[in-house]
Design a protein around this nucleic acid. Structure first.
Length: 215
DNA sequence: TAGGCCATCTGGTCCT
DNA sequence: AGGACCAGATGGCCTA
């Protein structure tokens, strides 16, 4: 789905040039100083007619390079920038691919029906969050019942207040974070058959819902 | 056709 | 200096 190279925006050199001046190397300074009128600090502060330090440096460089017209240098600088940008793009692409791979792995361990459409990125994250949360609560319930403690869960139909506190708050149908705003799983998941938002662990515990209802 | 999702490019910032 | 990370911009694809 890569944009057509022909449609890709042209590499913007001027902006980067401007940004990189403070740390520019000798070569870069030399190249830019020979650049035709552009909004750069060097060109503003270091013209042929002013600037002692700049003039001195310029003279030095000119002596070293043996010339004042340096189209080759511009070309080299431009090539270097393009090369750096290209490498950065490659790294960024790779990074995003890794991120997507991790997301796919996460999808792989989430309970969904085979015929479900692939979860979007945001759905995957929300659902994983809720799934983990519900499983945690389930374990907690199991522990409590194992040791004969009082069940902490409210009735299934009782929903917690939106600002229910800790992650351990069982009154919540959804984990606290997902309850907030757009993170509510009902917003994005309820219309997906077979991909329900996590049910209350209390309901699981009481048998009001089978675990399969969670899926 | 509008809106959602996605991949990619890009420049900025922070870190090593 | 170079890499990682991030967020904004852009354009393509798909669906209601």
């Amino acid at each position: 789905m890569a944009p057509h190279p022909s449609c890709a925006p042209p590499v913007q050199v001027t902006h980067e040039t401007e940004q990189r001046f403070p740390g520019a190397s000798d070569d870069e300074v030399t190249c830019v100083a020979s650049t035709p009128p552009s909004p750069t600090r060097v060109l503003e502060n270091c013209t042929e007619t002013e600037g002692g330090a700049c003039r001195g440096a310029s003279r030095k460089l000119r002596a070293r390079r043996g010339g004042r017209s340096r189209p080759k240098c511009e070309l080299a600088l431009s090539k270097q920038r393009r090369s750096r940008r290209k490498k950065a793009n490659d790294r960024e692409r790779n990074r995003m691919h890794n991120l997507n791979s991790a997301l796919d792995a996460l999808r792989g361990v989430l309970p969904t029906f085979p015929d479900d459409a692939k979860l979007t990125k945001i759905e995957t994250l929300r659902f994983a969050h809720n799934y983990i949360w519900a499983l945690t609560q389930t374990l907690r319930i199991a522990d409590h019942s194992l040791y004969g403690l009082e069940p902490l869960a409210p009735p299934c139909e009782e929903l917690a207040s939106p600002d229910a506190g800790s992650p351990g708050d069982w009154g919540s149908l959804y984990s606290p974070v997902s309850q907030a705003g757009s993170l509510s799983p009902t917003a994005s998941l309820e219309d997906r058959p077979g991909l329900q938002a996590p049910v209350s662990p209390a309901c699981l515990h009481s048998g009001a819902l089978a675990f399969s209802d969670f899926l």
